[in-house]
Design a protein around this nucleic acid. Structure first.
Lengths: 234, 234
DNA sequence: GTAGTTTTATGACCTTAATTCAAAAAATGA
DNA sequence: TCATTTTTTGAATTAAGGTCATAAAACTAC
């Protein structure tokens, strides 16, 4: 009985098609202006069908977030395959994150949408929640691995707890990257302009700052950061 | 002709009354569930009147954000009046921020709402925007001042640009504080639980990390952090 | 005090966008 | 080919933000 399998496959295809439409609309008009009517129209299904494939609008957005977190975690994992020291991996992961947000601001917005879900959004019993969590966890684990590599190869101090350090770098780089997002996408955020600060030099200062804190004495990298930046840009 | 002044005053009072109602509702039910009908009912005005005093819902939320940023900036400015070294001020500002978010999560949420406004929210030509910006700028300036004090009293390295360093500490602490918010308020954020990490020890690690990066050699504070924490709690 | 004018308040109504559901269409299986 | 199950549809419902003609109140002038 191969029919149910075929139907399952077709269902997944249609879900993917709908998500593609939603993604296109989000990139065109921004996540805030996503409209279920338009998604249905663009995907060439009726509004009723939309709700056959997705529980609600949140479910659709989380579908996008799943793609976003998947892309990011893949890019981050890739850093671990390079033939570089642990601390360079840490820098590169940060740069990857920053470049991702610059290149895909609306994907980043969908990630923040996910972050902001409260239990009050009871409806959001979306299957994507688990998948997004898993993707984010993969990224986080990559950070932990990079730190472990660094401790092993002697480029990062062993005095920290790797996981705690990873959370710390994770959250602080999140703060920095979020600022880059605001700088680029919200007109009334003018902290950088007002103080005549370039995002890139800020990122370098960040690297330098954490470099001082975590690198071993013979591995304080405060030059060569630009080369890392270049590496990230495809 | 004191009448127009009196009317102006009465108008301000009514705006304040409405904002109080909105604030109470937000604290009760969360910012996401804020409802204009309920605000009107709670403030004992008609819905029509509500829109006489506020341009739209965004305007109301920004009114709350104005209060939130005002409170925070006041608490932060207060740190500058203490008889402590510059680097201790920097630590205390961070701790103040963290404690503020823990104590007033919905206020923090209103601040993020403000951050997230895009030009697409054209309607939000709210007078509060400027006020919120000004409040945030006050907080930021306090951070710059603390750094300048530290450079002057010798507790912070003079090799950084004070403003750039302030932006860096601002954004990274924002990231950390945001994580604290998510940890406390969104059930599906489990990074800390999963890795068995306490927010307080994370904050201490943050202080230690930036301490290594910015403090002068004779001023690397890696103990005494708990005492700073205690000071913040009223 | 009263009549006219301006200001303020009201709630029924409008609009938009998410969501539902009874009925129709398509697919399946005998 | 027809009965049954599955899928699709779009009109209808609902919820919430926002508007506006009308009424009430406050003010001004006589």
């Amino acid at each position: 009985m191969g029919i149910s399998e075929r139907k399952e496959r077709e269902k997944e295809q249609k879900k993917a098609l709908i998500l593609q439409s939603a993604e296109a609309l989000i990139i065109e008009k921004g996540l805030d202006n996503l409209n279920m009517d338009e998604v249905a129209e663009r995907a060439e299904v009726s509004k009723g069908s939309l709700y056959l494939y997705f529980k609600n609008k949140t479910d659709v957005v989380l579908g996008i977030c799943n793609k976003a977190t998947g892309m990011l975690s893949k890019e981050i994992s890739e850093v671990l395959t390079r033939d570089i020291s642990g601390i360079e991996m840490v820098y590169s992961i940060g740069a990857t994150f920053l470049n991702f947000v610059r290149a895909h601001p609306e994907f980043f917005r969908s990630m923040r949408f996910f972050d902001n879900l409260k239990d009050t959004d009871q409806l959001s019993e979306s299957d994507y929640i688990e998948m997004c969590q898993s993707n984010m966890n993969t990224s986080f684990t990559s950070m932990v691995r990079a730190i472990q590599v660094g401790m092993q190869d002697g480029s990062i101090q062993s005095s920290y707890d790797p996981k705690e350090l990873a959370v710390l770098l994770w959250s602080t780089s999140h703060g920095l990257v979020n600022m880059a997002y605001l700088h680029q996408n919200t007109p009334h955020f003018q902290l950088l302009e007002k103080n005549k600060i370039e995002m890139n030099s800020l990122f370098e200062a960040y690297m330098k700052l954490i470099g001082c804190g975590i690198a071993t004495d013979d591995d304080v990298v405060n030059n060569d950061l630009k080369s890392i930046f270049e590496t990230e840009k495809k």
